[in-house]
Design a protein around this nucleic acid. Structure first.
Lengths: 153, 153
DNA sequence: GATTAAAGGTTGTCGCTACAACAAAAGTCT
DNA sequence: AGACTTTTGTTGTAGCGACAACCTTTAATC
């Protein structure tokens, strides 16, 4: 029960901490920032909608709405995928890249200050392992974390 | 980075897992269920709005909307606090109690199945400690977890 | 090769939440 | 006492996300 209440509290509080800083300093929700960040790390800064949905733990429906709004702000552009006529590619624009670059330092500082500064290196390792154990149930396919395995495990 | 991505994934996925089961089986969002559950454990099944907001990691504004909707469904009733004319008390109705009792088993099974069954007893302890470390930053006043300290620490 | 099923996306709608504005009562200060 | 600040809550609004319905294209089946 003690563990559960703490987990609920974290899940309830963390999004607000991330959203308010990013919205105030960069005009982006955390989810929007995360979408842009995932695109910024992808090859050609381009991903298919489905792949982007996986990397962001999101539904295609949710992502479609968000990408449409980002496109209206010229941070992202969409174009049909040449290989598969069903698919849509999302690509980060130059303005989108600039937005990520501008937003990143403040966001990183916020995450450090509100999350990692309170943890020892050992606790960070524990958090990684616990995250794997929890996500094994919450996300059996391991869509998001599939890419980022810790180097030392 | 590995730890952070896992934490984000959990925060993104857990609410959906909780909400969809509760909404399907009990017609309640997880937050609504949690509000009712906190009331059910309180003395006289009654709490002042501010106290309830603390126990649920919520804003007073958010809580006010939710309690109004719960009141419209006759699961909760509100009445002015005798000692402080500013304050409002929220009390669980009989129907509200029944709703919690009916919803609890399925919810508990869901939490076990999707969260705790994947963790060893040692990992549950680690999760509690990590939760404390994280909430020390996210919630310096420790509003929610103040009540539930693990017995053995 | 036609039919069926599955994958990939989009859109409309409803409900919830964050934010800001507001009001009223209770302390506080001089 | 009177002016102030703080606490306690409510409400309006705008924006986001879940869900369902839908469409198109690819893959599978017979």
């Amino acid at each position: 029960m003690a563990a559960w209440l703490r987990l609920i509290a974290i899940v309830e509080l963390l999004p607000g901490v991330l959203d308010s800083q990013l919205r105030r300093d960069a005009g982006l929700s955390h989810f929007e920032y995360f979408v842009l960040a995932m695109l910024s790390e992808a090859e050609d800064r381009t991903l298919r909608m489905t792949a982007l949905a996986h990397r962001t733990n999101s539904t295609l429906a949710r992502l479609s709405h968000v990408v449409r709004r980002l496109e209206e702000r010229d941070l992202v552009e969409r174009f049909p995928c040449p290989e598969d006529a069903r698919a849509t590619n999302a690509r980060l624009t130059a303005a989108g890249w600039d937005a990520v670059v501008a937003a990143a330092p403040g966001h990183v500082a916020n995450v450090r200050g509100n999350v990692f500064d309170g943890l020892s290196a050992e606790q960070v390792r524990q958090l990684t392992d616990l995250g794997d154990a929890l996500l094994a149930r919450l996300d059996p396919t391991g869509r998001m974390t599939a890419l980022y395995r810790p180097e030392d495990s």
